[in-house]
């Protein structure tokens, strides 16, 4: 709060009211509702509910399909995060270095930010189309008989490729702006201190990008968990079948299409706890991280 703040009593309440109302109706109420539902078993025909305690949760942990989705989520998230961060870092370092065409490269590498995830899913369908997909033809040269939507691994491969493609721009933009905020003189000092370009990168540039990288790590994990939904859903063309899916997709599938409200709520609560843990971890790290000023 500002030192010289206004002291009106009702005005700020008025200003806060729209935000608070929306939050209570569409955030706290649903969250509480999910928490409550996760302890009940809903009658599939809408006639009442029974308190079942932790049963919804224990059932999930015993469910092979849930554990399969959980494992896939972990692997998918790690792959997407690692690949999109490292490729974006490489591109950002190069875009930061070149003088000619720097602006053009920047535009070309970031506009995909605005492409909606389901469109990325559609592109994946075309690229790996069974009869004439260009990338399918390409991997066929190496004897890979690619079967999108049929083979579990091939489908997962497409999902990872398209999710990385869609996420590159965000990471690129943040890394580039992180690089550009490193003072020029610090880089020049390194130029005098170290003749090896690789040495300068790992000793000076990389540690100075660490805060950006850490922040992006969290962003990428949340992206892989939540924002990839559109990519999955278009790839499945509405028929998830035995395809790989993330936990978020499963919440939607079980709850919305399968009408298992209790189980789906329990899944929601697990996700909430997961995201909360992640955020708390992030805040902890931010607090501890050295402020480079």
């Amino acid at each position: 709060m500002k030192r010289a703040g206004f002291s009106d009593r009702w005005l700020p309440v008025l200003f806060l009211l729209p935000q608070l109302t929306i939050i209570f109706i569409f955030f706290y109420w649903p969250a509480a509702h999910a928490l409550r539902s996760s302890f009940f078993l809903q009658d599939p025909f809408g006639f009442g509910e029974t308190f079942v305690g932790m049963k919804n949760y224990t059932m999930l942990l015993d469910s092979a399909s849930y554990m399969r989705a959980a494992w896939f989520t972990v692997i998918f998230t790690s792959l997407v995060t690692f690949l999109s961060l490292s490729i974006a870092l490489l591109l950002a370092v190069k875009a930061d270095k070149v003088i000619r065409g720097a602006k053009t490269y920047r535009t070309l590498l970031m506009w995909v930010y605005a492409v909606a995830p389901p469109v990325a899913g559609v592109i994946g369908l075309v690229l790996f189309d069974q009869s004439w997909g260009p990338l399918r033809d390409f991997v066929a040269l190496f004897g890979w008989d690619f079967r999108l939507g049929v083979n579990y691994f091939d489908t997962a491969f497409t999902l990872v490729v398209m999710s990385v493609w869609k996420q590159l721009p965000v990471n690129f933009i943040f890394f580039l702006s992180g690089l550009q905020s490193i003072p020029r003189s610090v880089r020049e000092a390194a130029l005098i201190d170290n003749r090896s370009a690789a040495g300068r990168f790992w000793d000076v540039t990389f540690p100075l990008l660490a805060p950006t990288g850490f922040f992006l790590l969290i962003i990428n994990i949340t992206y892989s968990l939540f924002d990839t939904f559109g990519i999955f859903d278009t790839q499945f063309k509405g028929e998830p079948g035995n395809n790989p899916m993330t936990l978020v997709y499963k919440v939607y599938l079980d709850g919305f299409r399968g009408n298992d409200l209790g189980g789906s709520s329990a899944q929601s609560v697990i996700l909430m706890v997961l995201v909360l843990a992640l955020t708390i971890f992030q805040f902890r790290m931010v607090e501890r991280r050295i402020h480079y000023t």
Binding site: K2, G5, S7, L11, A31, A34, S37, V251
Partner: peptide
Amino acid sequence: IVYFRLKFATLAFWVIFTTLLLPLEVRILP
């Protein structure tokens, strides 16, 4: 939040900023 002396400013802050923690996707069904 920033420009007024509010009694419940801290509470309002936390009520509002907790929402940053949970994206819509995790509470989509409720």
